[in-house]
């Protein structure tokens, strides 16, 4: 019990650091793809320290300040509900659907905070994010339902348990189409190109973040760092069979890496196109996968 609580306290910090390193690696890898040298892999940690050291940043009100706080809190709670590296904390108390809803707390809190900023760019960013969400959530749910039906359970631990015993038992093989659909959805969930419309810096001045600077932005970076782990972690747990702590992070980085490669070479969709894209091809792939699962 004490070990669990210590782990619960330690794990978010570990995940934040690892997540920031993921982001740094992402910049490095993107730079290498661009034939650049790129920043050091710990660049994002420096960024966060700098952001927290900044003073006198604009504050539009209580909700504006609470937005990033809730964003971090929401992500941390989601983190505690997914099993990381065979170390389940609270995932016995909630299943995939609970997690899907817990995942929403963070963006919702942030969206409310952004709203008080009274910057139309922020609102447009949120509107785009929500539209995109309507797009990918359908795909994600189609895939998740397939997994739940295949496993006969919505509990993460049960799903991971069924995938034990080597690569061949991973759900990615029987549920390949669902995994593919989830991976396409993941591209938008992670906010990578071609689905980074919500924060398109060239169109709407980084959208939701437009009014956030200093420590607020730092918290949003932390939020993003956890989000990457959580979101890739869902994929790892659903399709790649979890794994021990190191393996788990390796798998999760592999998932992230795929998204990164696509991100590095892609332009950006128009938001309408992105929405339409999700409701056509990935949804169709996922539905075919779902039907296959339902039949067999």
């Amino acid at each position: 019990m004490t070990g669990q609580i210590l782990w619960a306290i330690f794990m978010p910090i570990l995940v934040i650091i690892i997540g920031l390193i993921y982001m740094g690696l992402a910049r490095k890898i993107t730079a290498r793809i661009h034939n650049r040298y790129g920043p050091p892999f710990y660049q994002n940690i420096i960024d966060v320290i700098k952001l927290f050291s900044k003073k006198d940043v604009a504050n539009h009100g209580v909700m504006f300040s609470l937005g990033p706080v809730i964003a971090v809190a929401g992500m941390v709670i989601s983190l505690l509900f997914i099993p990381i590296g065979n170390r389940p904390l609270l995932s016995f108390n909630g299943d995939i659907i609970v997690l899907l809803y817990l995942l929403v707390i963070a963006p919702l809190g942030m969206a409310l905070g952004v709203g008080e900023g009274a910057n139309p760019n922020g609102a447009i960013g949120i509107a785009r994010a929500l539209t995109l969400m309507l797009g990918y959530e359908v795909v994600l749910v189609i895939a998740a339902v397939a997994v739940m039906i295949h496993a006969g359970s919505a509990s993460f631990m049960e799903i991971i348990r069924q995938q034990q015993g080597g690569v061949a038992h991973w759900f990615i093989w029987p549920l390949f189409l669902s995994a593919l659909a989830t991976d396409i959805a993941l591209q938008a969930i992670l906010g990578e190109k071609p689905f980074d419309q919500p924060i398109a810096p060239h169109e709407i001045a980084s959208g939701p973040m437009v009014e956030y600077g200093g420590k607020f932005l730092g918290m949003l970076q932390i939020y993003h760092a956890i989000a990457i782990i959580v979101e890739t972690g869902i994929f790892v747990n659903l399709f790649l069979g979890g794994g021990s702590l190191v393996w788990w992070f390796v798998k999760s980085f592999a998932v992230f890496f795929v998204a990164l490669l696509i991100n590095a070479v892609m332009p950006r969709f128009r938001i309408g196109q992105a929405f339409k894209f999700y409701w056509t091809y990935p949804a169709a792939i996922g539905l075919v996968g779902l039907i296959i699962v339902a039949i067999t």
Binding site: F52, D56, G214, K215, F216
Partner: peptide
């Protein structure tokens, strides 16, 4: 985290 950061 909020209180760690600088003043606003």
């Amino acid at each position: 985290l909020y209180f760690i950061g600088g003043r606003t």
